[in-house]
Design a binder for these strands. Structure first.
Lengths: 330, 330
DNA sequence: TGTTTATGTGTTATCGATAACAAGATAGAT
DNA sequence: ATCTATCTTGTTATCGATAACACATAAACA
C-alpha cells in the first residue's frame, strides 16, 4: 500500500511537504510541487482518509439511517444527496433500521463508530432511550428527515404527515363520501403513517364519516399486503366508497384486488395512496396519491450540510410541500 | 468525545486492557471485565473504528459503486446486501457513477481513499485506463456485479445480457413478428444495454427480421424518454409489430404513448421491457419483461464476502438466471 | 554589514486504537 | 524455599496522516 512516506521518499522531500502539496496548503515552491505531484502520480498514491480524519478529527463521512433503501422515496433522497455532497468529497454510508427501534439502536452505534461528520436519520420511529442518549452524548450534527411533525436534531426536513392525512380527508369529503376505510401495515412502528391515519380519521370523524381501519402489524408495506388486506375488507362485507392506503404500493395491490373482484374504480370505490412512487410506473390507471418531492428534500439536506459552518449546522426546519396528485382512481 | 483512555481511567486499568475486554480477546479476570464494561457503559463509549482500522490495517467498510441508487434494481441489491453484511458489522458506503467513466474514476478514488475491505462495482461501463490501473494497484478484493458477460474481479455475479437479448428475440420470433424496434437511451455508455440490443438484433436478423433502432444518447432511461422516443417512432411512420425497450420504465412510457395514440396492445403492437421493476406497480396492464432477482444477486455477493478467508475472496462467478415474465403486453 | 522579513521545508507530537512483547502476581511442582 | 508455569495486566511502538512549531535560506532594508 502506497503511503505519504513512499511519495516523500521518491520526491526526496519530507512527508509533511507532500501532505501540504497534495492538499494545497502552505507555501511550496513550484519546483517541489511538480516533483511531488509526479511522484504521487507515478506511485498511484491515494490518500488514506481514515488516517487523515483521525489526525484532523474531522471526518468526511455522512451517515444515513433510513427504514429501507429499497423504498423508492428514500432511494431518491439518497441519490439526490449523493450528487450534491460528492462535490465536497463527502462520502455517504447507509444503514437500514427496518422501522425497528432495536435495530435502529444497533445501527446508530455502528454508524457513530465511524465518527461521521453528519448523521441523517429518518424520523417517525420510536427510538429507544439508549439511542436518544447516544445521539445526545455524541452531539453529532444531526439531521432528521421525513418527519416534519416532530422536529428533532439541528436540521429537520420533511413533510407533515398530519397535513397529509388532512389532505386525504379533505379530498374524500370533497367527493361527498360517507363510508371510507384506511388500510395500512406495520402500524405500531411507523409513527408517520400513524399520524396520517389519525389526522385522516379525525377529520373524517369530525365531518360525521366513520373510518374502518384495516391493518395488520406484521405485514410489510407492499403491494401484496394491499391485496391481502383489501380482500379482508371485502370479505368482511364492508362496503366502502373510498380507501386511503398507507402508501402507493399497497394501494396498487388494493386496486388489483378491487378490479379483480369486479368493482369499478372510481365509480364504486375511490382509491388513494401516498408517496407518489408509482407515478412513473403506471399506465392507464393513474393512482390518486399525495406526494412530496424526494429529490428536493435531498437538496435541502445537502444545502444545510454544505453551508454548515465548520461542521456546525445552523438550526433549520423545513416542511416539505405536499401535493395531491389527482389520478383517475378518485 | 469518549475514548478508550477515558474508559481505562474510570475503570482504573490500562487502555490495552479495555481494548481486550471490549473485543473479547486475551485473558482478563471477570472482576476487571465487569469494571470495564460498567465504565464503558456509563460513559456511553463507542469505539472509534477509524482508529481501529488504521491500527489493524483492516477495514470494516464495503464500498459499493453503482450507476444510480434511485434505480430500483440497484436499490434492491444494496438492501439485501446490507441486511446480510450487517451481521458481520460491515458498513456499506455507496457512490454513483451515473454510467460515466470519468465520474466513475473520481468515485473509485474517493472510495479507495477510505480503504474498503471490499469493492463492489457494477460492471457494464467502459472504465478509464486510470480506473483500471488503480483497481489493479490497490488489489482490493473486487466484486463485479450486474455484468455477467465480461467477468472482472475475483467475484462476478450478474445476469448475461446477451442471453437477455436472445430471450427477447426468441419471444418475439415465437410470436411470429416480422417488423420490430428496439428503443433505448444513453446508448454509448451502457454496455450491458448495448449487449442486450445487439444480441437481440443479431438473433432477429438471423431470422430475417429487421430491427429499427430508436435511441438518443443523451436522454435518461426514464418513462418520459420512452414516451418521447416512441412518439418519434410513430411520427417516423414506422409501423412495427413489437418493441423491445431498454428497461421497464421506458417501456411503460412507451405503452402510455402507444395507448394514447390509439394503438391496441398487444393486438397492434407487442411491448417488452427489461428488469421487472414495474411488476409491483402495475395494475391491469402487466408488462412482459425479462428480469433477474436483485435480492438473490445481493445474497450471492454477501455470501462471497462473508465466506472470504481473512479478506481474501475466493474466485467465483455466477450467472444469475433470467426469467421471461409474461404479462399481457405481448 | 547586520538585522529583519519572507519563503520554503523539516521535526516532533498527536489523533485513537491495537500488536507484540514485557512484567508482576499467583499457584503449583520439586 | 526455589523455580517454573499460568494467569493477568501494562509498556512501547505503530498504523498514516496532520497541526503546530522550528529552522534554514534568501531577499529586503537600514
Amino acid at each position: 500500500m502506497v503511503t505519504l512516506a513512499d511519495v516523500a521518499r521518491l520526491a526526496k522531500v519530507s512527508t509533511m511537504t507532500v501532505s501540504k502539496v497534495l492538499r494545497g496548503t502552505g507555501a511550496i515552491s513550484d519546483e517541489t510541487k511538480t516533483r511531488v505531484f509526479e511522484a504521487a502520480d507515478q506511485l498511484g498514491y491515494v490518500p488514506n482518509r481514515l488516517a487523515g480524519s483521525l489526525s484532523t478529527r474531522k471526518s468526511m463521512l455522512v451517515a444515513v439511517l433510513i427504514p429501507s433503501i429499497a423504498d423508492t422515496i428514500y432511494a431518491e433522497i439518497i441519490s439526490s444527496l449523493h450528487g450534491l455532497l460528492d462535490q465536497a468529497s463527502l462520502s455517504i454510508f447507509i444503514a437500514e433500521s427496518r422501522m425497528d427501534p432495536q435495530i435502529e439502536e444497533r445501527q446508530v452505534q455502528e454508524l457513530l463508530s465511524l465518527r461521521p461528520a453528519f448523521l441523517i436519520r429518518s424520523g417517525g420511529i420510536d427510538s429507544t432511550k439508549r439511542t436518544q442518549a447516544l445521539l445526545k452524548r455524541f452531539k453529532v450534527p444531526h439531521i432528521q428527515i421525513w418527519d416534519g411533525d416532530d422536529p428533532q436534531g439541528q436540521v429537520n426536513v420533511g413533510p407533515s404527515h398530519i397535513e397529509a392525512g388532512k389532505l386525504a380527508a379533505a379530498h374524500f369529503l370533497g367527493l361527498g363520501l360517507n363510508r371510507v376505510a384506511y388500510v395500512g401495515a406495520e402500524t405500531q412502528l411507523d409513527i408517520c403513517a400513524s399520524r396520517r391515519m389519525e389526522s385522516f380519521m379525525a377529520d373524517m370523524n369530525a365531518a360525521g364519516v366513520e373510518v374502518s381501519v384495516i391493518t395488520e402489524p406484521h405485514l410489510p408495506r407492499q403491494a401484496e399486503s394491499g391485496e391481502i388486506l383489501t380482500r379482508q375488507l371485502l370479505e368482511g362485507g364492508l362496503s366502502v366508497e373510498g380507501i386511503f392506503y398507507l402508501n402507493d404500493a399497497m394501494a396498487i395491490g388494493g386496486l388489483r384486488t378491487l378490479l379483480n373482484a369486479g368493482y369499478r374504480v372510481p365509480e364504486d370505490v375511490r382509491v388513494m395512496g401516498f408517496n407518489g412512487t408509482s407515478r412513473e410506473q403506471t399506465i392507464n390507471t393513474r393512482l390518486t396519491t399525495i406526494s412530496t418531492d424526494g429529490r428536493r428534500l435531498g437538496e435541502a439536506v445537502a444545502k444545510a450540510i454544505l453551508e454548515s459552518d465548520n461542521g456546525e449546522l445552523a438550526e433549520f426546519r423545513q416542511l416539505c410541500p405536499l401535493t395531491l396528485d389527482l389520478g383517475n382512481t378518485t
